[in-house]
């Protein structure tokens, strides 16, 4: 009886194994295909964006209206005009203003929160803060933008008495809501991956918890925290809907963060809808898109490098 059972079990195990192999083969191919498609997608987008941006550098007809030289010889962004002017300076400065404000608020808050949850918080608090941060990450940016447009703008105007209700400050603060969870989760992960042995050694040598958290954990996890900040920067530069709704979109060149600003991403979103295909304006918008693409690509590779550094550091290779 027991002998019979083992044989039965054996055959079933074999057939299971066989079927498993076949399905594994199919699944493997499907996964390969989807990863290949993802890469192909990125490459095609890359080719398309750059092909549409290229006339700005090569086509003499387009260059009369918009060339690298013209981009920086005027500060006025006035694409729909008898004499179209594509001054990128005010748009680049506008983007930077928003990003600086966003990082100014999000970096201390998110890194501080990460240190707190990773080093100090009791388990119960930790289990509360992490999901809440994830919920914050899940808020659609259009909702954040709407909130900034309707509520935050009036609130800040009440405090700072700025002439313009929608401005770089307002957009930057709204943007920081979007990037805080991003920086937080990466910083928290890298703080958590600091080996216990290092912390224990530090405590055993007589350092208190603060000293351990800042001098040991944070300095070991620094590459990871930096990677989080860099990715946050990339997201802040590329984020569109929030700034489109909350910044006022006037292309004003000034140092005042309470002036309305127009950012690169918002310009593309607002103007690409009805631009004549193949016109200089169209190519300029793609040129801005290509610049953003290159910028975020650089930023992401930089973040990748720093994370790799962290891993090597933890493995004791540096």
């Amino acid at each position: 009886m027991s002998h019979l059972q083992t044989i039965e079990n054996k055959t079933e195990a074999m057939s299971l194994k066989k079927r498993f192999r076949l399905s594994e083969f199919i699944i493997e191919k499907i996964i390969f295909l989807s990863s290949f498609l993802a890469i192909l997608g990125v490459i095609l987008i890359f080719v398309f964006v750059f092909r549409e941006a290229l006339p700005v550098l090569t086509n003499p007809e387009v260059k009369k209206e918009a060339s690298l030289k013209l981009f920086f010889s005027t500060v006025i962004w006035q694409p729909v005009s008898d004499l179209p002017r594509y001054g990128l300076i005010s748009i680049i400065v506008g983007t930077l203003k928003v990003v600086v404000v966003a990082l100014f608020f999000s970096v201390p808050i998110s890194v501080g929160a990460a240190i707190y949850t990773a080093e100090f918080a009791p388990l119960k608090v930790k289990e509360f803060i992490k999901p809440v941060a994830e919920i914050l990450a899940g808020i659609p940016s259009v909702v954040l933008g709407f909130f900034a447009l309707m509520v935050m703008a009036s609130f800040f105007q009440g405090i700072f008495h700025s002439t313009m209700r929608l401005n770089a400050f307002n957009a930057g603060v709204a943007l920081s809501f979007a990037i805080i969870p991003l920086i937080y989760s990466i910083a928290e992960d890298s703080l958590n991956s600091v080996p216990r042995s290092l912390k224990e050694a530090s405590l055993a040598l007589g350092a208190n918890r603060w000293q351990t958290a800042f001098r040991v954990s944070l300095s070991v996890a620094m590459p990871g925290v930096l990677a989080g900040i860099i990715l946050g920067l990339g997201r802040a530069v590329g984020e569109t809907m929030i700034v489109l709704m909350a910044s006022g979109n006037a292309s004003i060149l000034s140092a005042n963060i309470f002036d309305s600003v127009r950012t690169m991403s918002a310009t593309i979103a607002a103007e690409l809808g009805e631009v004549v295909h193949g016109s200089a304006h169209y190519n300029v918008l793609f040129f801005i898109g290509a610049s953003l693409f290159v910028f975020t690509l650089l930023i992401n590779s930089l973040a990748h490098l720093t994370v790799g550094r962290l891993q090597r550091k933890l493995a004791g290779k540096i």
Partner: peptide
């Protein structure tokens, strides 16, 4: 041309 101070909203 519109003034550069014009805030454009969707």
């Amino acid at each position: 041309d519109f003034s550069a101070q014009t805030q454009t909203l969707p």
